[in-house]
Simulated scan of single mutants.
Amino acid sequence: MPERNKEFGKFGAQGIKGHEAVARQLDRLAGFIATPVTQRRGLLARLHYLTRTDHAKAAARQAGLTVTDRTLKAWLEGRRTPTAKNLDRIEAAYRTVRRANVSRHLLARLNRRGRGTRVEFHPLNQSQVPRPLQRVVDYRTLNVRQWDRIVDAWAADDTRALDDAWINDAVIDLGSQWGEYEYVTNIGFAA
């Protein structure tokens, strides 16, 4: 079994870690608010999402948004604007709460009652690698049936656990050449 790449890009190969591509795809499926938090519309959308119920408020506080109800009300009414530090906290709390809220639904969509989801591996970009050093790496597909650890690590925003779960629960099923797909240009799946 190949080891993990230790000097990726030494000869000019370009790509990203597979778990980072999976996190991006899961973020797309989660449907985050597109308007940035720095614009009034994006700020209000996030604040409404975080304050619409008592459960949402408690989750936001647990995620790091620790301002008073009075301050939240002033932000919502437009009498005050949050500082840059508070904008970062609002964004972080929003993403944490949103991931927790959609993870169960995403898990059901991806597992599909044991049928799993087809994943497309787009190999790394070797256009800058000298010809004699290039590997033959093909586009591959794989049906991933167990998404539990992957989605849990994504929802917790734990990149180390996500990397381990992605390698051990999905990529390893590619066979003896799974190390060639540790870095990719893209990971595609639709659920």
Results as ranks from 00 to 15, higher is better:
L26V: 06
A108L: 12
F189L: 09
R131C: 00
A60L: 13
V119P: 12
A108C: 02
R104E: 12
K6C: 01
L29S: 07
D88A: 15
P36T: 06
S103M: 12
P123C: 01
Y94L: 08
N101W: 09
Q25T: 11
A153F: 08
E180W: 10
A74N: 07
Q126P: 05
N125G: 01
G18E: 02
I90P: 03
K73V: 01
P130T: 11
V37R: 02
A93E: 06
V97N: 06
T83E: 07
W75A: 05
R46L: 09
A56K: 13
R98E: 13
S103C: 09
F32L: 14
T38C: 00
Q146R: 15
W178I: 04
L72T: 03
A84T: 14
M1P: 11
L124Q: 08
F121M: 10
L107E: 12
A165L: 04
E91G: 09
P36F: 05
A156P: 03
R52E: 13
K85M: 02
D88T: 08
K17W: 12
Y49H: 15
T159M: 08
G31M: 14
L142F: 00
A165C: 06
V129Q: 07
A93F: 07
P2F: 05
T96L: 05
N143Q: 08
I167S: 03
I33Q: 13
A100M: 09
W75K: 03
P82K: 05
N101Y: 11
Q39H: 13
R160I: 11
G175N: 01
I90G: 04
T38D: 05
E3T: 06
G42F: 11
Q128T: 09
N143Y: 00
R99E: 04
G179P: 06
V151Q: 13
E180A: 11
G175T: 01
L50K: 10
L174M: 10
L110Q: 09
R160C: 01
D54I: 00
R52W: 08
V102K: 15
L87F: 03
V97D: 11
P130A: 10
V151L: 13
R115M: 09
L72S: 04
A108D: 14
V102P: 15
R140P: 01
F189V: 08
E182Y: 13
L162W: 02
R135Y: 07
H55E: 15
N86D: 07
R99D: 04
R131K: 08
Q62Y: 03
R4P: 00
D152I: 02
T35V: 15
F32I: 07
R80N: 12
H122Q: 07
A93I: 04
L26C: 09
Y94T: 08
F189M: 09
L47C: 05
L107D: 08
L107V: 06
L133S: 00
P2I: 04
R149D: 14
D158Y: 10
R61W: 04
E120F: 14
G179C: 08
R135T: 00
A165V: 04
A56W: 03
H19P: 02
A191N: 06
P132A: 13
G42Y: 11
N101L: 14
V137A: 05
L107K: 14
I187L: 14
G9P: 05
W147E: 05
A92N: 12
Q39W: 04
